[in-house]
Design a protein around this nucleic acid. Structure first.
Lengths: 340, 340
DNA sequence: ATAGAAAATGCAAGCGCTTACATGAAGGAA
DNA sequence: TTCCTTCATGTAAGCGCTTGCATTTTCTAT
């Protein structure tokens, strides 16, 4: 402990233990290659000096950082937070650390963050959603950084992904809504530009409508950035539309919660007058009243799976295999048949 | 773009531009020291090759990483997520990136994470709460890594902090509860061991009780890890206690939401039969019904302030100044007078 | 013009680590 | 015993960048 004013290096440890730096390095990285007695001596020296390896140096020398980067749209959202937490737990277990950056749903920022993380020497990268410019994927290829996409599942895409079928799930939910007897559906979607998940969900609803095909169904679409307040505003606007929807499906739970709140303050009863659905099944969905009928997404499972797949890719054990995590509808109180 | 199979280095850029690596480096780091024409040439080369500096190398050479580490108990919680998001936004603005790690409220893990981040060469560190072993602070000193504590404000502590007065705020809230006429207070606290914020909040309630001093007040304390389910369980247990509290104060909003849910499923009306309070004022607090009377903590402001203070410390502009962010009570529906 | 100062650039020494290769010691087969 | 493996360790060359110092160029004032 700290008599010296500056951090001990490999060299200090080597001198203390009376061996070469190479031996110390091997002790730390491939203990099997060093004989017991030496190892013990070295470890004692490490302990005595309070040595911690300088990772930047290690990255440079070994061209390996044991760190993974993740770029998510925002941390301030239960959906990503939970998945990310699981992701990092799994990484930690395998000896990797996590560098996070957030893009605020802005492609230029994301691009910038990707460059930063790559420059920092991450061994692999977790990205949310497939949609981004080719040049970004080119860049990653040039730098030989494997990337895995999450929160989205598109087996035919250039990048492997661990996610779920946004379109199918939303289609199922929409069919449920139709089956309950609703004919005028309002859809409050997140911004679809540059966000394949949001887009897929919209398409899911369209699919359901097309399949139903009585011809009597209508759909009213409003796009808005995610956020409770935005959901509220969109809902208010939706209620002005003609025909007024009897069911409002939301692109995610956060929007749905906003819609619910607005309904309350507008004195519109849910589900009596208007039914509302969400997507993701965040904690909030169960807590709020009426509780939210929504699509349950196993975020933790996805996070964990993404971590292990990405590590497999980094360590050359996999070329990148896509996995579809299955979701299911959770029926709660916010959806019932229209009253007519 | 990528004809070469391997990433371009400073050297490649230097050759392309017909200058020395030193000049390229200066172009990138202190453009003023390079004449216009040269700079233009260099930047063109950078662009042409798609060069991104290798940050590990830079860290090593300059002993500066332009990155800040943050270790939070968990990402999966609106409180930290929001503050952290603000923190990172501010960092980004000033040209720093963020490395996060989470400790799951476990000191050993935190210690480990601190070492990892320091080894990675972070220029500064954000820590949550003051309470940790001396040796950790010694270690940070030895490595000359400035650390700032957030979510807690203790100007007399060894480390500077940007936070709020947990004890005072909770005391104020408790006085509010007492003033409403409650005499039997239940307190569901987070685990206080190793968590000075939780402890301060408990003490705040004690302070209020002591000051009230009718002698008739009682307090029942239950400690539990944070989490909605834990809050629910604790509430159920609380309802068995004798005397049964007429007001249940919770260490944070998450616990309060759990309590509220449990009250509902127990058929206990809130606030009619039992009043409930929270702490933090996360989004949930307003959304849930009855809406939660709680202490509003300006997390974003704290995150931003922490970032700029920490950067000032890193850049030698400040030796570490503590700031107290002021909180205020938000009165909503979950607290009324006891019915008797 | 020209000396001297100032500005721009180049040179090269590291930063702390890993690892290919060289060396030496120990063990085994003949 | 001798020669060949095999294993443990040491030697030293980088990894890509920054920066103090040396050198060259440009500018200013005479």
């Amino acid at each position: 402990m700290g008599k010296s004013r500056t951090a001990p290096t490999l060299n200090d440890v080597a001198k203390e233990a009376g061996v070469s730096t190479a031996t110390v390095s091997r002790c730390l990285n491939s203990p099997a290659r060093v004989v017991d007695e030496t190892r013990k001596r070295v470890l004692k020296a490490v302990d005595k000096l309070g040595y911690t390896p300088n990772i930047a140096a290690r990255i440079m020398a070994a061209n390996r950082s044991y760190s993974i980067g993740a770029i998510i749209p925002t941390m301030d959202n239960a959906i990503f937070a939970r998945g990310l937490q699981a992701f990092q737990d799994q990484l930690r277990e395998k000896g990797y650390s996590l560098l996070v950056a957030s893009s605020a749903y802005r492609p230029e920022i994301e691009k910038d963050q990707i460059r930063t993380l790559v420059a920092r020497g991450v061994d692999g990268l977790l990205l949310i959603g497939h949609e981004r410019k080719h040049e970004i994927y080119d860049y990653l290829e040039q730098h030989q950084v494997p990337a895995l996409v999450a929160w989205s599942y598109m087996p035919e895409a250039r990048q492997p992904s661990v996610g779920f079928d946004n379109r199918g799930a939303m289609c199922d939910l929409a069919r449920r809504v139709l089956a309950a007897g609703h004919r005028h559906i309002g859809l409050i979607s997140g911004v679809t530009e540059g966000n394949d998940r949001a887009l897929s969900r919209v398409e899911g609803v369209r699919d359901a409508l097309a399949k139903a095909g009585h011809g009597a169904e209508t759909m009213t679409l409003i796009e808005t950035p995610y956020g409770i307040d935005n959901g509220a505003r969109a809902f208010a606007e939706m209620m002005q539309r003609n025909p007024r929807p009897t069911a409002v499906m939301c692109g995610n739970d956060v929007l749905a919660v906003g819609a619910l709140r607005e309904a309350q303050s507008l004195g519109i009863s849910v589900p009596g007058e208007v039914a509302i659905t969400g997507f993701d099944d965040i904690e909030l969905a169960e807590i709020i009243s009426p509780s939210l009928t929504t699509v349950h997404v196993p975020h933790r499972e996805m996070g964990r799976k993404a971590a292990s797949e990405l590590i497999d890719m980094v360590e050359g054990r996999s070329a990148g295999q896509s996995t579809c995590i299955s979701t299911h509808i959770v029926s709660r109180h916010s959806l019932v048949a229209p009253k007519n």
